[in-house]
Design a binder for these strands. Structure first.
Lengths: 212, 212
DNA sequence: ACCTGAACACCGTTCAAGT
DNA sequence: ACCTGAACACCGTTCAAGT
């Protein structure tokens, strides 16, 4: 097997098992069965290794096919694939946000979203912006879930406002009924996607009437 | 001055100047004029230092006031404050996504968004989800800008599809006209906010008619 | 009460040396 | 052509010692 591929396999396995911080030239080399310095001719540097890991992840995203689907189905397929990926590889979100997507596969994912928006009837000049809005949200959602931003503290104001005087959180007070229990993140993701699909549909409808 | 505050000042100054990676117990201690180990009684650990930095940032966000504004103005004020913060402290986005918001100030920011959504007329049971949708997008946008995900490569397909066969990027081909030039990120952020405000208005309108 | 110095187990990377 | 060993300049953190 190609040494470079073996190195990537090892790095991804370590990241899946113990997080991105556990990926070091030393731990990767150990897993491959070689000295840290032996990695350099094959992958260049730690940064290049992270870029290559990102490329692998995006390759997985491209495995999904959207041929013959409606634009709603296409977007849903891509969004779910993105979120599934974030769950399978919890470190992927951090990586995506922290470095520009240089892999050629990244452009192909972007293109798939462009195509879905175009077939929805979104005016050409609005497509790139809406693609960034969608991908930013999907990435952010995945990262919030896996990174802990949507942690239990977000939902349960009891035990968090201990050091705040009463009456400073009127919003929380009024919404108490909806803030108690656990949240179904799958359900919430579906609802968000439905809302964003509505937004796209509205864009397309206005586009057909011509711009304001 | 309180030693703990001085330590936080130093850490934030270093992060602003040289990035979050440059913040180490050693560099912070150097700036304060003390040995690394002298920090521990005051801040506990590196992780606690990062949490405290996050708290400071959120405190800045609470300085904005939204009293007497329409809900559209309230949301715009908060969104702009969030994005300005991300520009002033480029490391803040990474920090927000990578750890749950434990600071009491975080709940107050959330509450401000709750209040705006409530006064827009969004049904109570949809407010927490829409708050997460909004904050996820705003954070993600700031992080994409400062972290480089919205880098020049995203916009200019020339020079990136060198290793892809022709015809694999139909979306890019059709949108070539809109993908050439530089993007005004301020303008794009405004347009995104306007779209999300439309979405909220639509929610409120449907809520008044009663649920489906 | 607060700080220091030495130490431990880690990093990424360079460079000369081995086969 | 590919890999190793030693070294350099870094990490966060512990622990005994100083004032």
């Amino acid at each position: 097997m190609d040494r470079r591929e073996a190195i990537l396999d090892a790095a991804i396995a370590i990241a899946d098992e113990s997080g991105l911080d556990a990926v070091s030239m030393r731990t990767v080399a150990d897993r491959v069965g070689v000295t840290p310095m032996a990695l350099y001719p094959h992958i260049g540097s730690k940064g290049a290794l992270l870029d290559a890991m990102q490329g692998r992840i995006l390759g997985e995203l491209l495995a999904v096919t959207t041929a013959g689907q409606t634009w709603q189905e296409q977007l849903a397929t891509l969004a779910h694939a993105g979120r599934d990926l974030a769950k399978r590889h919890p470190w992927a979100g951090t990586l995506m946000f922290s470095r520009p997507s240089v892999a050629p596969d990244a452009v192909r994912v972007t293109d798939a979203i462009y195509q879905a928006l175009l077939s929805a009837g979104v005016p050409d000049d609005e497509v790139p912006r809406l693609e960034r809005l969608l991908s930013t949200f999907i990435l952010g959602y995945g990262l919030s879930e896996t990174g802990g931003r949507f942690g239990p503290g977000e939902l349960n104001p009891r035990g968090r406002r201990g050091n705040l005087p009463d009456g400073t959180l009127p919003g929380h007070a009024r919404l108490a009924k909806w803030l108690g229990g656990p949240t179904d993140w799958d359900e919430e993701f579906e609802a968000d996607l439905a809302d964003l699909a509505d937004l796209i549909e509205e864009k397309a409808r206005r586009g057909r009437r011509g711009p304001d």
